[in-house]
Design a protein around this nucleic acid. Sequence first.
DNA 1: ATCGAGCATAAACATATGTGAGTGCGGCTA
DNA 2: TAGCCGCACTCACATATGTTTATGCTCGAT
Lengths: 242, 242
Amino acid sequence: MTRMTNPLILKLEQRDQLSEEEKRTLENAISRVRVVEADEDIVREGDRPSESSLLLDGFAARYKIVSNGRRQISALHVAGDFLDLHSFLLKTMDHGVLALTTCRIAAVPHATLEKITDEYPHLTRMLWLNTLIDGAIHREWLTAMGRLSATAHMAHLICELYLRLKAIGRAEGYTVQLPITQAELGDTLGLSTVHVNRVLQELRKEGLIRFQGDALTILDWERLKKVGEFTSTYLSLQNEDR
Amino acid sequence: MTRMTNPLILKLEQRDQLSEEEKRTLENAISRVRVVEADEDIVREGDRPSESSLLLDGFAARYKIVSNGRRQISALHVAGDFLDLHSFLLKTMDHGVLALTTCRIAAVPHATLEKITDEYPHLTRMLWLNTLIDGAIHREWLTAMGRLSATAHMAHLICELYLRLKAIGRAEGYTVQLPITQAELGDTLGLSTVHVNRVLQELRKEGLIRFQGDALTILDWERLKKVGEFTSTYLSLQNEDR
DNA sequence: ATCGAGCATAAACATATGTGAGTGCGGCTA
DNA sequence: TAGCCGCACTCACATATGTTTATGCTCGAT
């Protein structure tokens, strides 16, 4: 993996500058890369990982199954995201992580993370920041789920995913590849598959999006943002001293 | 404030041991204590705090207002919780924090936090852990909101609050003081006030809880846990090396 | 070239939860 | 002591979303 293509570094450098040494440290932190096929578990609930998984390519989801077999997805992840950085300190996984598409995953040993916290304070803060952004996204999803209509919630999610994909260079104009089924979107939004379909029809009919196959195009960014009551503050896309 | 009563230290020591020096450092981190009355804002959306607020006593909530004036509470906080530790690295508040009761609040300057990250790696990890637990709670709420019935969701919340209050020594047997109105519970669960009332009636009728005034008593812990599909893993109440 | 699997879509119907408009209690405040 | 205000609680009715069942694509496998 060359430095230029490491999506984690890309992600962090949008939030603050990294020194050459910090970048080198991050690259050396990766112990091995594996491939997980779509629909396979990357980490399971109850696991106590000794390393954290960094998603290099593909789409993954954190999820939980409740008693009647229903599933809730609590996070969607794209290249550059850590899938379970929290397991470094939380130890036991309270949810599973699933590959939505074929995923390339790098392993970062917890021992290495501990060493980073001992020796590289600023890099430690940047990793901490990474988990704080996850938390900010959780809060935003909670608000959308609790207080927005299904349509607004979907619009909100689409805005977020578009910006996150754009931030790692995976948008072409207003089009992104989003290989996520309507059932998976339902599990993300807390909706039934049928209702996801209704809501997508509505967004299409309103001329806000096009979504055929995996290609999602935002046709009217301003109106979509308005429908989804979306503001991007919580994604911390600004470069600041941290 | 004497060491014995510092609820943050109490909280962290349940998760891992702290050295005397770490405890002293935490205590010295507090620059001043203020009191905020019920229904006042502690931090506002859009603020860029230069210090983080540690709740010493009282109940507080993180919240967001959406366009039609509806409110969603994304976190409930009790003594020992940081209300906006994340603002140390996220910089801009993407939500507000509100006092639900009279609150005693200690200020911890971000400059002090930065110094801690430079000099005390283990203490840094413990603060990071603190925010990771917030994140774990968010994920659990997402699952409950998306995939549990209103009744189960309420049961789940009650189980969580009971354990969190017990963990800081604020439970008497199965009774806790919970000075939260039904409207606030609705904003937490994403429900209307009317439905909160229905759901509480049901839990009472089932003999699971008693809730008069502020006193909440769990009458049948096992069945309440079952109704709310509650397991406490996500609260990280175990003591481990971190 | 055919088949099957997975997925998007549709319609009819069911229901959990929301809305609007009240009542009444209990505790402050004057 | 009276009056008010916030809060718990109720009822009748409205609706957003769920459920069940089915159809027909599309694409990969054989």
